[in-house]
Amino acid sequence: MSIATRFTTLFVGDAQADRVVPPSGFTANLTTFSAAAMAFLAVFALALSLAAGRLADRWSNDLARSSTLRISAPADQMETQVAAALRVLETTPGVATAKALSEEEQRALLEPFFGPDLPLDTLPIPQLIEIDETAQGYDAAGLRLRLAAEVPGAVLDDHTRWRKPLVRAASRLRLLGWTSFLLIGGAMAAMITLAAQAALSANKQVISVLRLVGAQDSYIAGAFVRRFTLRGFTGAAAGMVAGLIAVTLLPSAQQEGGFLTGLGFQGADWFWPLLIPVIGAAVAFAATRAAATRKLKELP
């Protein structure tokens, strides 16, 4: 039998062939239910992975493009040091723009922490210079050396210090999401294998009758495989729909919520959960087929 015919007989089958194995209402429903539960969880694992991935990308892209130079100097030297720093930055390859923040801008930055009545003019607040990098970026170590020589009060904060752990955390979270996704798939394979084995054992008599009348193993296995593939697919499809509804009902992404509210799917991401029923069917197919092949070899 060619692969193509095998494939058509598997999925189109003939209705008659599926009737040779007696129906099994209750266990069938259990299998479908488990597949649905797994798919539901898989939707969340997927949402977590995708959201963590988005976060990691954003943090590593946005923050990589900007950094801050902080200048602490006695009030009388401040202006010369700021001017010196801007000069250094202008001649640094990889720096697109460098701009000293105005007093209002600095106040706005500090307001969330100290309130609106901060007497900025009487406090020795460092002057901040905002740096935007070109796509290539600059050499932070080299810049630090030049600044140390020419602007003693300057501290370069290239954000990598606090960005790195965040990006790492987001990447870990993404990995965790994908690991959960794989584990869910594995659990589903295990569950289907158990169910299929139970079905094969319960139908020993049926199998021996089929053998007696000349059924080949592929035919017998096919009857079970089709059945479980269909259950895996319908269960996973139902679970996926339920999972998507639940994700849609989550509060929408907001600036203040940060990560937690960004858990939904965005844009092309909606495509991925649609694969879950297909994956569910594929897992059920492979698991049942393996179980059936093993069992049919065992049976006399």
Binding site: D14, A17, V20, Q205, V206, V209, L212, G214, Q216
Partner: peptide
């Protein structure tokens, strides 16, 4: 031995069914 869940007609036709000559 027969398949107890199928009517006699289908049981007798079983060899045809399994060989795709139904």
């Amino acid at each position: 031995q027969f398949l107890d869940h199928l009517p006699l007609r289908e049981n007798i036709a079983l060899p045809l069914t399994v060989s795709g000559r139904h």
